[in-house]
């Protein structure tokens, strides 16, 4: 049995799981009821629907340790989530979210004619440079056009201009227009309240 205690002083056991399904009403209700039925608490969750497929990632804490496979099966059964796939693993839960200083967030946007290997080309470059992707969105915007938006963490040791030039270079090879811009520009132009 593999478990990991939370950083909280109370004896709780943390798990992270991911569930994939065709999109339909009732999936969130099923998952949350199942967690509730075994005394679990949802610490954080994020869900999205893409091309009519549903996925959710959740961190939960439980009163006692579970086998990951059994826990997954329990959630599917209790939640009546027939046809859903689930993957579970133990996790360290950071109460209230991570508090350490995070690097600045930048946004990469890439737009061009769709072809194989777009996400791979950009993500391989970012991995080489040790740049962490924290959010990724990709979609065909027209019949043949593909739009990629990636939010990445760039720490102070990186030269932004060099990253921009490299990314634009990769874009040129693929026939894509690529921009790397600091996140604050998107905050400033969209959010009513600004923090100074």
């Amino acid at each position: 049995m593999s478990t990991q205690k939370t950083e909280d002083s109370t004896e709780r056991f943390g798990y992270v799981f991911n569930l994939l399904s065709d999109d339909r009403p009732g999936i969130v209700a099923g998952v949350s009821s199942a967690i509730n039925s075994i005394g679990g608490n949802i610490e954080a969750c994020s869900q999205t629907v893409l091309n009519r497929y549903f996925t959710i990632i959740m961190t939960v804490t439980l009163d006692y340790p579970w086998d990951c496979k059994e826990l997954g099966e329990k959630i599917l059964t209790e939640g009546r989530l027939k046809g859903c796939q689930i993957s579970v693993r133990p996790a360290v839960i950071y109460p209230g979210g991570r508090v350490e200083n995070r690097p600045d967030t930048f946004v990469i946007t890439a737009f061009g004619r769709d072809r194989n290997g777009i996400v791979s080309a950009f993500s391989r470059y970012l991995a080489e440079k040790d740049v962490n992707i924290i959010d990724l969105y990709g979609n065909r915007t027209g019949k043949e056009e593909f739009l990629l938006i990636s939010q990445v963490e760039v720490d102070a040791r990186h030269d932004i201009q060099n990253l921009q030039l490299d990314l634009e270079g990769i874009g040129n090879e693929l026939g894509f227009t690529v921009k790397l811009q600091h996140n604050n520009i998107f905050v400033a132009t969209n959010r009513l309240r600004l923090e100074r």
Binding site: V107, T109, I134, D135, Y137, L147, I149, Q151, T177, K179, Q181, N183, I185, F186, V187, T189, N190
Partner: peptide, 16 residues
């Protein structure tokens, strides 16, 4: 985190 549609609105303004 900034939403995709917010990014798209700004990108359109910046580049187009």
């Amino acid at each position: 985190m900034i939403q995709t549609d917010e990014i798209l609105t700004t990108i359109r303004m910046l580049h187009s």
